[in-house]
């Protein structure tokens, strides 16, 4: 099915060449600088920079909160996508447009607004405080900000798949005696799995690097609520460039491996589950 490069279409060299050139100029060469700067360190120094207890604590928070936020979004994102595609209700179009808000809203504004809302005297914070729940300036705050940032990724990857979903498949499952829940769990969900996986990874990767919205709400306490991007900034302000780039390199490699894995998985599932 895959024709090899002898296509009748023109422009392969031009477009690929331009793509690679532009990619190199804007992304790859600048990113290579981070590796170049890191190479000033010996292995020992590198290890010391990226594996100090405070740095490890920040990885735990950044990866942990990003993972939990992406997981939350996986559930609620699917729910929102499902509601938007399958049901009719008043104001649906407005809700649909609203989902993209975190894409479009500047992160600093999001951070300030979330802090104002979730601080102990904020609109929502004041109801949570008597219950002993503190959101702003705790790990929960980091989680809230990252959930905000990641929501559209899941909804927007699942929604189109759900829209193109052939209802006949669900019907035949039902006619074979499956109840609604079984149909969803055994038939619908597996079909959505690739889209969910993509959305989850994008939300996770995006949350890992998020800075602007988190610093306002997190409290920035070492070992407790300090995220990895903040540590990079801190190192920069100590004029410790190699140390900063070393941590940046660790995050870069982690993101790259994650994205690569997901793209391979997509490619693989594309090949193996292509409808005949």
């Amino acid at each position: 099915m895959a024709k090899k490069t002898t296509s009748v279409l023109p422009g392969f060299r031009l477009t690929l060449g331009y793509t690679v050139l532009y990619l190199s100029l804007i992304v790859l060469i600048p990113l290579a600088c981070a590796f170049w700067k890191t190479s000033e360190l010996t292995w020992g120094q590198f290890w010391h920079a990226v594996a100090a207890p405070r740095v490890l604590a920040s990885y735990r928070l950044s990866f942990g909160a990003s993972f939990l936020a992406a997981l939350t979004n996986l559930f609620f994102g699917l729910l929102v996508a499902w509601v938007l595609v399958r049901y009719q209700f008043w104001g649906k179009r407005f809700v649909d447009a609203l989902v993209d808000l975190p894409f479009a809203l500047p992160t600093a504004v999001a951070g300030i607004a979330l802090t104002a809302v979730y601080a102990p005297h904020g609109w929502i914070g004041q109801w949570l405080e008597p219950l002993g729940i503190q959101v702003a300036f705790t790990r929960l705050g980091v989680f809230v900000a990252l959930t905000f940032i990641g929501l559209p990724f899941i909804v927007r990857t699942v929604q189109p798949v759900l829209e193109d979903f052939d209802l006949e498949i669900e019907e035949s499952a039902a006619s074979l005696g499956a109840n609604r829940w079984q149909t969803f769990w055994r038939v619908t969900l597996p079909m959505l799995r690739p889209a969910l996986l993509t959305g989850f990874t994008l939300a996770f990767a995006r949350a890992l690097g998020e800075y602007g919205s988190v610093v306002f709400i997190s409290g920035n306490m070492p070992m407790k609520t300090e995220i990895t991007p903040l540590l990079i900034i801190t190192k920069l302000e100590e004029f410790d460039y190699p140390g900063a780039t070393a941590i940046a390199v660790v995050m870069l490699v982690a993101s790259f491996v994650l994205l690569l894995a997901i793209n391979f998985l997509q490619w693989w599932s594309h090949r193996h589950h292509r409808p005949v």
Binding site: L28, A205, Y211, A248, S255, F256, L259
Partner: peptide, 30 residues
């Protein structure tokens, strides 16, 4: 078109999504 390394290329294009904004500013300073 079909060519080798397509997945890697797509991943590289995706990469700025997940690079921390802080890092992306820093590399230009470097």
């Amino acid at each position: 078109f079909d060519f080798r390394g397509k997945t890697v290329l797509i991943t590289l294009i995706d990469l700025p999504f997940s690079v921390s904004p802080v890092v992306s500013g820093m590399i230009y300073v470097l």
